[in-house]
């Protein structure tokens, strides 16, 4: 009896349900505002465009569950794209250019880790610094020009289809998301991510190597950004140093919309994937409805704030139910 009530209470406070409902509402609204919204082509379009966010936000989810933050992903995306484009345009074989993109992403991730773990700079400042360092590097590498003249097979990955149906970017995003989901749910590392975010001091006393966790997490965030850079660079067909401005915002909105707690210790990859879809549907739907593109910024900004408010409300709800379920009522009786 008690467990049934607990289950109901849990579902009521389950952020994934709320996220799914938001997505459903958006889909319904946009199907009404544009007849082109609910088509197979547009579905592929939306999922394809959300793939880079899914790839990076999956890693950022782990970082944020552990109470970290990575604001540098947009700029690191750009520098990784231009590094591989630069190499490819000067005759380096494509696989090597891809490896260079991964190495660039990983390198900046380790730079973040060095600032945060080595120099004890707060994540928000450290990754804000890296955001500018990486953006500057992207412009310096290309002399602020857009790199073109890429080999003919450059665009294959970004525009091709697996078995002729599923766009490769979606396949890559699915693989990355599943990887991080398994990592989070089925490994000691994953449990440590939750433990560090839930109570860092307790995790440390319990023997978790907290600094090593953070190094690994920021490295993963950088490496995922490198993967996203390969997909995005290929899809766009050029090496544009302006790419990915505001991308970190999309990732963080996706993570928070997906129910990852800002306070750390809670969150799931499935939620983040839904969150990324919401961001993509929002942009796409507004586009198709003929709304001026600048309204997309407004909409995303509102979405972030609303998500945080919902996060807080569901947390209050859950905590009060947990207090009621808990063995002892600690409610304080007021003095009369």
């Amino acid at each position: 009896m008690a467990s049934v009530r607990t289950f109901v209470a849990r579902q009521r406070g389950n952020p994934a349900i709320a996220t799914l409902m938001v997505l459903a509402i958006l889909v319904v609204v946009f199907s009404l505002t544009s007849s082109r919204f609910l088509t197979w082509d547009n579905f592929l379009n939306v999922t394809r465009s959300s793939s880079t966010v899914v790839i990076v936000a999956s890693a950022v989810t782990l970082v944020m569950i552990a109470r970290g933050l990575d604001l540098s992903v947009g700029s690191v995306l750009a520098v990784s794209v231009v590094v591989s484009a630069k190499l490819a345009s000067t005759g380096t074989p494509l696989p090597l250019a891809y490896l260079a993109a991964l190495a660039t992403g990983l390198g900046f991730g380790l730079l973040n880790a060095g600032f945060i773990v080595g120099l004890r700079v707060s994540p928000i400042i450290a990754t804000l610094g890296t955001l500018n360092i990486a953006r500057g590097a992207a412009f310096l590498i290309t002399s602020s020009a857009i790199l073109v003249g890429l080999p003919s097979n450059w665009a294959d990955l970004g525009t091709g289809y697996m078995f002729g149906v599923v766009p490769y970017p979606i396949v890559v995003a699915a693989v990355v998301a599943v990887f991080f989901s398994l990592l989070l749910n089925y490994t000691v590392f994953g449990r440590n991510v939750y433990a560090v975010g839930g109570n860092e001091e307790a995790a440390r006393i319990a023997g978790v190597n907290v600094p090593r966790m953070y190094v690994a997490l920021y490295a993963m965030s950088g490496l995922s950004t490198g993967i996203a850079a390969i997909v995005l660079g290929s899809r766009l067909g050029s090496g544009d140093p302006n790419i990915g401005v505001g991308f970190e915002f999309d990732c963080i909105v996706a993570v928070i919309l997906g129910g990852t707690s800002l306070a750390g210790g809670e969150g799931r990859i499935s939620g983040t994937v839904l969150g990324a879809l919401i961001v993509a549907v929002l942009s796409n739907g507004l586009n198709l409805a003929g709304v001026e593109p600048f309204w997309q910024y407004v909409a995303k900004g509102v979405a972030l704030v609303v998500a945080v408010v919902i996060d807080r409300l569901t947390r209050l709800e859950r905590e009060s139910t947990e207090a009621r379920i808990g063995a002892v009522g600690s409610a304080e009786a007021p003095v009369e």
């Binding site: 449990r191 939750y194 839930g198 995790a203 319990a206 210790g265």
Partner: peptide, 18 residues
């Protein structure tokens, strides 16, 4: 001590898993 949002099992075995 406790990692509040996590299950009893994980709280018991966290040190062991390290």
């Amino acid at each position: 001590g406790i990692i509040p949002k996590r299950p009893v099992e994980e709280n018991i075995t966290i040190s062991w898993t390290q």
